Simulated scan of single mutants.
Amino acid sequence: MSTPESQSNEILFISDLHLSPEYPATVQRFLNFLNNRARQADAIFILGDLFDAWLGDDDNEAPYQDIRVQIGMLTSSGTEVLIQHGNRDFLLGDDFCRHTGTQLVPDEMVVDLFGTKTLLMHGDTLCTDDTGYLKAREYLRSDAFANDFLGRKLEERKVIAADYRKQSGEATSLLPGDIMDVNQSAVESVMNKHDVTRLIHGHTHRQARHQFEINGKTCERIVLGEWHSDQGMALSVSQDGIEELLL
Rank of each mutant, 00 (worst) to 15 (best):
D49N: 08
G169A: 12
I83L: 06
V110W: 12
T100I: 08
D57Q: 07
H194S: 12
V223S: 01
D148S: 11
I11T: 10
A171D: 09
L154Y: 05
D181R: 10
R152G: 00
I179G: 09
I11C: 02
K135F: 07
T128N: 08
T26L: 05
H194R: 07
I67P: 07
W227Y: 03
K166M: 10
N60L: 12
K193A: 04
A162G: 15
G169K: 10
K153D: 10
F30D: 08
N35A: 06
D124R: 01
L154M: 03
L82E: 03
F149E: 03
D163P: 08
C97Y: 13
G225Y: 06
L120Y: 01
I200H: 00
D163F: 08
R152H: 04
D124L: 12
V81Y: 01
G132N: 14
G93H: 00
T102F: 09
H205A: 00
I71R: 10
I83F: 05
H99V: 13
L31F: 05
Q28N: 14
E108C: 15
L120Q: 02
L104K: 03
A136N: 01
D148M: 09
D129W: 06
E226I: 08
E22Q: 14
A162Q: 15
D181K: 05
A38I: 03
W227V: 08
D42R: 15
E170I: 03
Q239M: 11
V69S: 12
Q167V: 07
F45S: 03
S142E: 05
D107Q: 11
D130W: 02
E155A: 13
N192M: 13
I46E: 04
T116P: 04
T128D: 02
I222M: 02
D95W: 12
E138F: 01
I222E: 01
K217M: 14
H210M: 06
P21G: 11
E243S: 08
L55A: 01
S142F: 02
K117T: 01
D107W: 15
I67Y: 08
D95T: 11
L120T: 04
M121N: 04
L174C: 08
T118V: 05
A144D: 11
N183E: 13
R141W: 09
E220Q: 14
D240T: 13
G241Y: 05
M1Q: 13
D163R: 10
T118Y: 08
E156T: 12
L224C: 02
R221P: 05
V159N: 10
D66H: 14
E61P: 14
R206W: 07
L175R: 11
Q231W: 13
F145I: 06
F149A: 07
A25T: 15
E170N: 15
Y133Q: 00
S76K: 03
A38F: 02
K153L: 09
L91F: 06
D143S: 12
T118M: 09
H201Y: 10
S142I: 02
I83Y: 01
R137A: 03
V237C: 08
P63I: 10
D112P: 14
H228F: 13
Q103V: 01
I44A: 03
A186M: 07
K153E: 04
D52C: 06
S15E: 09
M180Q: 15
L17K: 07
R98I: 15
R39E: 10
L17D: 00
L154R: 05
I160N: 05
E188V: 09
F51N: 03
T79S: 08
